[in-house]
Computed example of a mutant assay.
Amino acid sequence: MPVALILVLLALGSVLFHVMSPWWFSPLASNWGYMDSTIVITFWITGVVYVVILLFMAYCVLRFRHRKGVKAAYNPENKKLEWGLTIVTAVGVAAMLAPGLVVWNDFITVPKEATTIEVLGQQWMWNYRLPGKDGVLGTADTKTVSTENPLGLMPNDRHGDDDIVIVGDALHLPIGKPVKLSLRSIDVLHDYFVPQFRAKMDGVPGMTTYFWFIPTKVGTYEAMCAELCGTGHYTMRGAVVVEEEAAYQEWLKKQPTFKQVADRAAKRRGQSDLASGEKMPAFTK
């Protein structure tokens, strides 16, 4: 009797905790409301099954408890019960998988009008690259990464000269416009995640991954790494600012291009050479 009561209380307590819990989704700030709907469907299906199983266990403990003079019946096979459980289980699994497959199809189908922005993960910061006036991102390679070229752009690719380079700073996005984030990593496995956008993806060394979304709410959101990436993993955080188009364009004008960053680096390198006392080459008549 006490065990059956404990099982019933466990079922009721779990439901009440889920309904009354203050820990729920963060406010949605993108078009991926389907993610929330899919999770809610999964909660309903697994929750109902969980409660039914606990109540059934409580019934069995109470109904088939030990009593004097009562013997257990041995019934190793019950085809009707087995078929019923198989069908119910199959329907439940399909009901959980089907919405996820639909959402995944949308998740990997990027709108043609989406702006591609590169996200480069490294221990332990986020760097970004936006297309310049030509609207095309230049090619990049981790082999060319250096202090002067932190994103590893190919110097001989002219499409990269006007690319906007953001190193360790906040990413700004215009509200209401689709964005494709193309992820790379220069060291270990990272995972770019903004909870309010309901979208995330691994940044894998040696390959490019992506996801897309539409920012729908103005605000500043925390970008974090959702993959254990080393001792400084907990510090790998950034910010994504969603703003109106006018404010976004003002911010964009203030950001340096790859060519400007490279020119500044070359100038600093030249000044450092002079300060170190290196002899300048002599000119002969």
Results as ranks from 00 to 15, higher is better:
residue 258 F to L: 08
residue 176 G to N: 02
residue 43 F to V: 12
residue 100 G to H: 07
residue 44 W to I: 12
residue 179 V to C: 07
residue 112 K to W: 02
residue 82 E to C: 08
residue 125 M to F: 15
residue 99 P to V: 01
residue 79 K to M: 13
residue 115 T to P: 03
residue 240 V to W: 07
residue 156 N to Y: 08
residue 281 P to V: 02
residue 200 K to M: 09
residue 6 I to L: 15
residue 206 G to I: 01
residue 196 Q to T: 10
residue 213 F to H: 01
residue 61 V to S: 08
residue 68 K to S: 13
residue 189 L to G: 09
residue 22 P to D: 01
residue 24 W to N: 10
residue 135 G to W: 03
residue 109 T to F: 10
residue 148 E to Y: 02
residue 29 A to I: 04
residue 71 K to W: 08
residue 148 E to F: 06
residue 42 T to A: 13
residue 36 D to P: 01
residue 252 L to E: 06
residue 149 N to E: 03
residue 53 I to N: 08
residue 196 Q to P: 02
residue 224 M to H: 07
residue 99 P to F: 00
residue 13 G to H: 06
residue 271 Q to F: 09
residue 257 T to V: 09
residue 157 D to A: 00
residue 146 S to L: 03
residue 216 T to F: 01
residue 200 K to E: 11
residue 3 V to M: 15
residue 104 W to Q: 11
residue 170 A to N: 07
residue 105 N to P: 00
residue 209 T to Q: 08
residue 125 M to H: 15
residue 243 E to C: 12
residue 5 L to W: 15
residue 135 G to H: 02
residue 212 W to D: 00
residue 169 D to Q: 15
residue 83 W to H: 11
residue 211 F to R: 00
residue 187 D to F: 08
residue 12 L to N: 01
residue 208 T to Q: 14
residue 88 V to E: 06
residue 203 G to E: 08
residue 30 S to L: 08
residue 122 Q to S: 15
residue 243 E to G: 04
residue 149 N to P: 04
residue 220 T to V: 13
residue 186 I to Y: 15
residue 213 F to G: 03
residue 56 F to N: 14
residue 185 S to E: 02
residue 193 F to L: 12
residue 285 K to D: 09
residue 185 S to N: 05
residue 22 P to I: 00
residue 102 V to I: 12
residue 171 L to R: 06
residue 124 W to H: 14
residue 93 V to M: 15
residue 147 T to P: 00
residue 156 N to V: 09
residue 17 F to P: 00
residue 15 V to N: 03
residue 247 A to M: 09
residue 268 R to D: 08
residue 246 A to C: 05
residue 28 L to P: 04
residue 146 S to E: 00
residue 50 Y to A: 11
residue 63 R to M: 09
residue 268 R to H: 07
residue 197 F to H: 02
residue 114 A to W: 06
residue 162 D to Q: 13
residue 25 F to Q: 03
residue 241 V to T: 10
residue 70 V to Q: 10
residue 98 A to T: 14
residue 2 P to K: 15
residue 56 F to T: 14
residue 199 A to R: 11
residue 86 T to E: 04
residue 67 R to I: 12
residue 64 F to P: 02
residue 46 T to M: 14
residue 157 D to M: 03
residue 178 P to A: 07
residue 271 Q to L: 13
residue 118 E to N: 14
residue 151 L to D: 10
residue 229 C to V: 01
residue 62 L to E: 12
residue 70 V to A: 08
residue 67 R to M: 08
residue 11 A to W: 06
residue 108 I to V: 14
residue 13 G to C: 11
residue 200 K to H: 09
residue 227 E to W: 06
residue 179 V to G: 04
residue 85 L to Q: 11
residue 216 T to H: 00
residue 282 A to L: 11
residue 69 G to C: 04
residue 21 S to A: 00
residue 227 E to L: 03
residue 109 T to N: 12
residue 173 L to Q: 05
residue 257 T to L: 07
residue 19 V to Y: 06
residue 46 T to F: 13
residue 11 A to I: 05
residue 6 I to W: 12
residue 167 V to M: 13
residue 217 K to W: 01
residue 140 A to N: 11
residue 135 G to K: 02
residue 91 V to D: 05
residue 253 K to A: 14
residue 259 K to M: 04
residue 1 M to H: 13
residue 91 V to L: 15
residue 207 M to G: 03
residue 101 L to F: 11
residue 182 S to I: 09
residue 248 Y to A: 04
